[in-house]
Nucleic acid binder design. Structure first.
Length: 157
DNA sequence: GCCAACGTTGGC
DNA sequence: GCCAACGTTGGC
């Protein structure tokens, strides 16, 4: 399977591309949506490209690039009693939620705003530009990934 | 802060 | 299994 491409959302209050640049890599934890879980568990592979998307931001948009460095594994937070992401129904034998690890690749000179993605006809089919699209892990085509990288490298504040 | 869109919960 | 109520997401 050739590397695929994904867009992953996170709010800047939780984690930023600067945090990822500092940390080098991080566990993508706390995803609590079944559709996104299925992608993390079943589809996402080492070497896949990631568009790092800042949501609920000003502006919201793609902040940089990351790369998947582990396949899906059980999200440790589901077992951590008291944690916001604790899930009493999950057990180590039957985990419910999954994570992957991602590594920093590149930080765009500025956030590439969602509005710019929407304005690019080549990106008309991207999930993230569609109204009401809340999925926090989304598949992205190779062509879309390349186009967003190209735009992001020219992003200016 | 508003509110539309969506996902989940729970009564029946 | 339906679906209304509720909670969350997330752009603006």
């Amino acid at each position: 399977m050739p590397p695929r491409h994904w867009l992953m959302k996170v709010e800047p209050s939780a984690y930023t591309i600067d945090d990822l640049e500092r940390d080098g890599h991080t566990g993508w934890e706390g995803v609590r949506n079944y559709q996104a879980r299925n992608l993390l568990r079943d589809e996402i592979q080492v070497g896949d490209g990631v568009l790092f998307y800042a949501s609920n931001a000003s502006p919201s948009g793609v902040a940089g690039i990351a790369e998947v460095v582990t396949a899906g594994y059980p999200d440790p937070l589901q077992f951590r009693k008291g944690d916001d992401y604790y899930d009493a129904k999950a057990t180590p034998e039957k985990p419910i939620w999954y994570s992957v690890d991602i590594a920093f690749v590149e930080r765009f000179p500025a956030v590439l705003p969602l509005a710019d993605l929407k304005a690019n006809p080549k990106l008309r089919k991207m999930m993230v530009v569609k109204r009401g699209m809340r999925l926090s892990v989304q598949p992205v085509t190779a062509a879309e990934f390349a186009e967003v990288c190209r735009m992001g490298r020219h992003a200016t504040r």
